[in-house]
Design a protein around this nucleic acid. Structure first.
Lengths: 184, 184
DNA sequence: TCTATATATATCTAAATGATATATATCTAA
DNA sequence: TTAGATATATATCATTTAGATATATATAGA
């Protein structure tokens, strides 16, 4: 399939929850999707302009004192329609680029102990990630208790939980395999 | 940390296993790393030229009849050194962009049944992936039995196995949660 | 007082993705 | 048999994504 600008839809999706600025959009993604999505200003600002000229959103300027003006974007019904079409489109297979595996597959070029070190570090990263997720899940049970999308938010957190658990398990297994190989 | 060209190291890693052409490099990645890495010619060919001018690889041209010449690249010891330095560098946290989660987090904009459909499709994708992995693992036990990197290859396959199992489990769970929500 | 953080828009480079161009050969199914 | 798909091989191009930096002001904390 042709190349699809996912950021465009990510932005439409957020605007569908209410009017906001590019800055707000970045903030929101950091809060609700930091474990599975990231957006950069380098994409957000040009796309917002594009949405305006394409009639998918309208722009209003909110003056502020001492701070730059806020450009508030509001989704139009045309924008809403485009979002819904995309939401229903089936996702495609996607190969994540896992740097740890790239290093490991060339692992025989360095001592086994170096690969073990690498794996332990990887394990730590995902243990930390899991801790972060638990606090997100805790916040959902209190602060976001009434949010209409709560159910969906929970599913995304559960995704992170299961994947990180799998990665931690894999790290442990791999370390033990390599230690055995190293005659330990 | 600054932006790092990972393809560059992916290529160094492959060249370390023996001299080859850009075409070979693509083929090799499809064979040994299709479940966790992908490379495009758009990156491979310019980088190979770069490796030559930087003294990390040397180029030899192999004439062929009826087919284009093969440009065979051979890693230099300088290239080997750079590879090993990178292999020992700890990996960084990386947020994979999971489109299924992006769609799901905005899921309340469409009927629950549409989200269920989406999840079932996602589950199927990963069930298929798991089947593909099994056959890779089978090949390792026969054809690649003597390969010096076999142990590392097995670890990458096991990674795919555990992650895909987690994703399938998550899909099932999520479908059942949404079906309950839908009063079914 | 200096530093870090927050507010806000904007741009730039570099890297990754996916498609296409070019040219020949072979294999396969209608 | 012939049209279409696949394989060999290099190469480039347009988009998309990532990450850093520029600019300017305000505030909170060490």
């Amino acid at each position: 399939m042709a190349k699809v600008n996912k950021t465009r839809y990510a932005i439409l999706g957020l605007l569908n929850t209410g009017p906001m600025s590019g800055y707000d959009i970045k903030k929101h993604f950091e809060q609700i999707a930091s474990n599975f999505w990231s957006e950069s200003y380098g994409q957000i600002y040009p796309i917002l302009k594009r949405l305006d000229t394409d009639g998918l959103a309208t722009r209003a300027i909110e003056k502020q004192v001492g701070k730059p003006d806020r450009h508030i974007y509001t989704l139009t019904s045309k924008g809403q329609d485009e979002l819904m079409v995309w939401l229903k489109q089936p996702v495609e297979r996607h190969v994540g680029r896992h740097e740890i595996l790239l290093k490991l597959i060339f692992g025989s070029a360095i001592p086994v102990t170096e690969n073990i070190k690498q794996l332990r570090h990887f394990q730590k990263l995902h243990e930390d990630e899991l801790v972060g997720l638990k606090s997100i899940q805790a916040r959902m049970k209190t602060k976001d208790k009434e949010h209409p999308s709560l159910m969906y938010w929970k599913l995304t957190a559960r995704f992170g939980e299961l994947v990180n658990e799998a990665l931690i398990k894999w790290s442990r297994e791999s370390v033990s395999v390599l230690e055995k190989m190293n005659g330990k």
